[in-house]
Amino acid sequence: MKTIYKSLISILFITSLFSCGDGTKDDASETEDPKETAQIKQPVNVTGREVSYSTDSVKMNGYIAYDSSFEGKRAGILIIHEWWGHTDYVRKRAEMLAELGYVGFAIDMYGDGKKADHPDDAMKYMKMVMQNMDGAKARFDAAYKQLASDPHVDPENISAIGYCFGGAVALSMANAGEPLDGIAIFHSSVQVAIPPSDKLQAKILVQNGAADPMISPESVTVFKNEMDSLGADYEYISYAGAQHGYTNPGATELGQKFNMPISYNLEADTTSWNKLKIFLGDLYPSGK
């Protein structure tokens, strides 16, 4: 399994060679009157459904979630999966975003809803995408168009979040100038296939674990220097003691099963999700 671990580290940096959980809701503050809080809160009815969409050559299976108790248009958030593929985990994140008043769209970057049960398969699927960035962009664009065309979404208000592999994709797409208001990435490489340029227009939030051996301090320094040189609007947060995969409640079991340095961290997961809520709230202050 050491070979798998070394290979994973290599693929997380391979993008630079190609030219380049549960979140928890905030509790009511101690000064709030519970009765007043109950009156302010609106009922939420999260509806989720599978969505098929495609490029010229690949069919993809996504999952969209929204609050059906609200009839107006709202911001749409693309969620890009870890290297394991389009799992229930990203669908859960889509539903959590729907609870916050957004339309969450868990997309499928591998095609046909492929999921990996073993790191070898995950590696194969990830390489397939990261070694063909034109194809990756086509898949991302198809997902973007699908979300923008949804009747519940304001097509002028779209952002993306990504985990691990998905974070690298999101950052690459932002660097390529995709019309995203913001991107937020978790336990993700910051040296990616498409380097930053003046095309970058998205606000960026990076939240990584300080104990993640797959993200080198050198790569973080390079990333910050690149962002600073562009005058980009970004924030980099490092959580002490958090390893790779810290937002995924299933990460610890997978790490033990495959002898990989990944594990869930409840505190970092909760804190990073709350930070995401603030990040999105700043982008979309009107909410629903």
Rank of each mutant, 00 (worst) to 15 (best):
L17V: 12
M173R: 15
D212E: 11
S159P: 13
E71I: 04
K114W: 04
P151D: 13
P195L: 07
T37L: 14
Q207H: 10
A142P: 15
A122E: 04
L205R: 07
T3V: 14
M227Y: 01
M260E: 05
Q146L: 07
E178Y: 10
S189T: 13
R74P: 07
Q146Y: 01
A116H: 07
Y163N: 09
H152N: 12
F18G: 03
Y236V: 10
A176E: 09
D134Q: 15
G162A: 02
A142Q: 12
A122P: 08
W84Q: 06
N157R: 14
V90T: 12
S189C: 06
S238N: 11
A160M: 07
Y66D: 09
D121S: 02
K41A: 13
D233L: 01
V129W: 01
P261A: 05
E95H: 12
K59I: 11
T55W: 11
E30G: 08
I77M: 03
S272N: 03
Y110N: 03
D228G: 07
G104L: 11
S68I: 05
T37N: 03
H152M: 15
L283G: 08
A122D: 12
H86P: 00
I79C: 02
K115T: 15
A211H: 04
S286W: 05
G166L: 05
A211C: 05
G177M: 00
